[in-house]
């Protein structure tokens, strides 16, 4: 409390700061005079306040009763309306039960308990003498342990203490398998049919009219062992555009079929499904962070936080007219990762 000399009402009151001198300041006038409340002077007001508090506690009792009534006598009958009514009644019952007690107690405190403000002196958190003593004690402890005099003991202990927690980290190794190249391929394979999500029925090229969009999963995915993990990488959006408006780059001319193209639905930003297809502008929009991809430029990013085009799934048509994949994706789908390369 070395710097605590300022602020006491009997000396200078405002704080002495460099440049201000602390001489020409107002003195603290002390607490303003106490103003009595209505309930302090008027016995009728006091009585009224007392009744109000009791009434509030009574409202709380009614609230509790309402809760029990709602719980036992509003049976749920599979309709949403009934559930809504029960929820409302349970909630309002609880609210009245709680607010009745709370408002009642506070009203009691405000109107009937003494409202004179009291003053208490602050004390220093600790005494400086104590601090010095504590320092001395710690010094003695360290001294008697000899840790300062025996660096060999100290250093080996530090080494041991640094190493000892490592097993606690290592033991978490089995939380999961190593990534391997799991992220680099998907469920898709050459010749696999494109099927509707979620039914898994195959899609004919003639089904896909201009302007339409199909949400696609690979054939057999619904029966796969790790269905959700595979689906999280394999989902595809299938669209048909006027072939004129597609501008495939060299080597990708035959990845579509007569204006039908298939792109990974997993955003290259952080992996939300990019499923918003604007059939007139030919833009794909991610609803999570608004990355926008242009189908006319092979799903190049034209807006938003994604940095990389959506991977395209090369497709073809089999003998029966069903759409099939020519191969797996040619690059990893979804968000980037360190080993992506």
């Amino acid at each position: 409390m070395a710097d605590n000399s300022h602020g006491s009402p009997d000396t200078s009151v405002t704080v002495a700061t460099p440049g201000q001198g602390g001489v020409d300041t107002f003195t603290n006038p002390g607490l303003p005079p106490h103003r009595p409340r209505l309930a302090d002077t008027d016995p009728r007001a006091e009585k009224r306040a007392e009744r109000q508090v009791a009434l509030l506690f009574f409202i709380s009792v009614l609230g509790t009763l309402l809760f029990f009534f709602a719980y036992f006598f509003i049976p749920l009958n599979d309709t949403i309306e009934r559930l809504r009514l029960q929820n409302l009644a349970l909630g309002l019952g609880t609210a009245f039960a709680m607010l009745g007690i709370g408002v009642g107690i506070v009203h009691w405190a405000k109107t009937l308990m003494p409202d004179h403000e009291l003053t208490e002196e602050r004390h220093a958190v600790t005494d400086e003498k104590d601090r010095a003593e504590a320092e001395q004690i710690v010094g003695t402890i360290l001294d008697e342990s000899g840790i300062k005099r025996r660096p060999l003991i100290r250093n080996t202990l530090i080494g041991a203490a640094l190493l000892a927690p490592l097993p606690a980290i290592a033991i978490f190794r089995d939380l999961g398998p190593l990534p391997g190249d799991a992220l680099k391929h998907t469920f898709w394979d050459a010749g696999m049919r494109l099927t509707r999500d979620p039914s898994g029925t195959p899609i004919k090229a003639s089904d896909v009219t201009v302007g339409s969009a199909f949400h696609v999963i690979p054939e057999g995915l619904n029966e796969a062992e790790n269905k959700l993990e595979e689906k999280a990488k394999a989902v595809v959006l299938l669209m048909r555009l006027d072939p004129e408006s597609l501008n495939p780059s060299e080597g990708r001319e035959d990845w579509g079929y007569d204006g039908i193209v298939a792109y990974s639905k997993i955003c290259t930003h952080v992996g939300c499904p990019v499923a918003l297809y604007e059939q007139q502008t030919h833009h794909l929009l991610c609803p999570c962070h608004q990355s926008t991809f242009d189908l006319e430029q092979e799903c190049k990013v034209i807006f938003g936080p994604a940095a990389r085009p959506l991977p395209q799934l090369p497709i073809d048509v089999d003998d029966e007219g069903y759409l099939i994949a020519r191969s797996d994706f040619q690059e990893p789908v979804g968000p980037s990762f360190w080993e992506r390369g």
């Binding site: 509707r196 899609i203 004919k204 003639s206 089904d207 896909v208 009219t209 201009v210 302007g211 339409s212 969009a213 199909f214 669209m239 297809y277 604007e278 059939q279 007139q280 502008t281």
Partner: peptide
């Protein structure tokens, strides 16, 4: 019909 930018969901889909 797929009005405006809404894709068409034809009966095959």
């Amino acid at each position: 019909t797929g009005p405006q930018n809404m894709p068409v969901f034809n009966d095959a889909n």
